[in-house]
Nucleic acid binder design. Structure first.
Lengths: 183, 183
DNA sequence: ATGAATCGGATATTCCGGTTCCGTTACGGA
DNA sequence: TCCGTAACGGAACCGGAATATCCGATTCAT
């Protein structure tokens, strides 16, 4: 494979990640090409069709995520920190993409396995945080995961934005502060 | 106007609300017609084009919302209750629709005015809740509104689901509970 | 320098939903 | 009951948007 071809393949992948993350997995191929500074022809040389491109990106992202979650769990530390670092890592990842892919039609078996693996890891992290009292126990672990995924998949989510902060605080508070009387 | 025609007009509006809320404002007209148990022809008899239909729904929903918010504010009561009742009312309203409409192209002046009015009311409710100490003050009123609108616009949002609960608790907690040590 | 690999982007093609049209149905006043 | 007319249904038509192709132009590597 020629050097420029390899370079362009990477560029396409980067551009597609950005564009799909920003505009959803059905963004126009031409937009991806423009973002990469290439022609559509080049794009189709490297990936036979849109599905192939999306699939490659999804697989990469899931692998990154799986590896990161494994490390976080293996690293130990206070389970609350594991949870908030998980959130920090996930925010900004193109999950909305992966999620909408999951809903869409047939994914190859390899990716499904990855998705299950990631889901398991998240559930384990949530369960442990609850077991150790860092997260309130009046909601299901499944709900904790779903809720965090909602927070994290928002377009434009940031680690330090209001919703992220408020949700993390709400999760951590086993007994909410009493409602003060109007002053 | 014949009786069956009036009835069908209502059916279309109901169906469109349901379908647009579920699948976004670009759902197929044919789906709307099917949901209403009518043919597309009938649909076009009542509304000249999709825009007219969407516009009618948006205007109705916004009016309902504006009226409800006015009542809530006028009713007085502890401001926390006003806030949580606001959320309760808003959950399940087809806001995702209105919001995506707002982003989309040209709305008639009348609707824009309504949107501003609703936004003002929400801001007032948020500000008062903060002023009276029911909601933490370390985030901007604007952020409170945005955050609640995120919660409330989710597809499938419910008053008693995990995210709603957690966010309300997180908003109410001026000082989050300390992180417990692992047990 | 040469030719094989790669690129670019105009264009044919496909897809999908909006809108129209007109034959059929059924309401409601006489 | 009967008729005129408003209203309905949905097949067919239309247009735009996005996909994928194709081939002349360009660039790399020997």
């Amino acid at each position: 494979m020629r050097a420029d071809a390899r370079r362009n393949r990477e560029r396409i992948l980067d551009a597609a990640l950005a564009v799909f993350a920003a505009r959803g997995p059905s963004a126009a191929m031409e937009d991806v090409a423009r973002e990469a500074g290439l022609g559509v022809g080049t794009l189709y040389r490297h990936f036979p069709d849109r599905r192939a491109l999306v699939e490659e990106i999804a697989a990469r992202s899931l692998q990154d995520l799986r590896d990161e979650l494994r490390d976080l769990r293996a690293g130990g530390g206070p389970c609350w920190d594991v949870l908030s670092r998980t959130v920090a890592f996930c925010v900004g990842q193109p999950f909305a993409l992966i999620k909408s892919l999951a809903e869409a039609n047939a994914a190859p078996a390899g990716r499904l396995a990855l998705q299950d693996e990631v889901d398991d890891l998240l559930m384990q992290i949530a369960e442990q945080a609850q077991r150790e009292g860092a997260v309130r126990r009046d909601i299901e672990p499944r709900e904790v995961v779903d809720l965090l995924s909602t927070v994290v998949c928002r377009p434009g989510a940031r680690t330090d934005d209001a919703l992220t902060k408020v949700v993390l605080d709400g999760l951590r508070a086993p007994v909410p502060a009493p409602v003060p009387e109007p002053s």
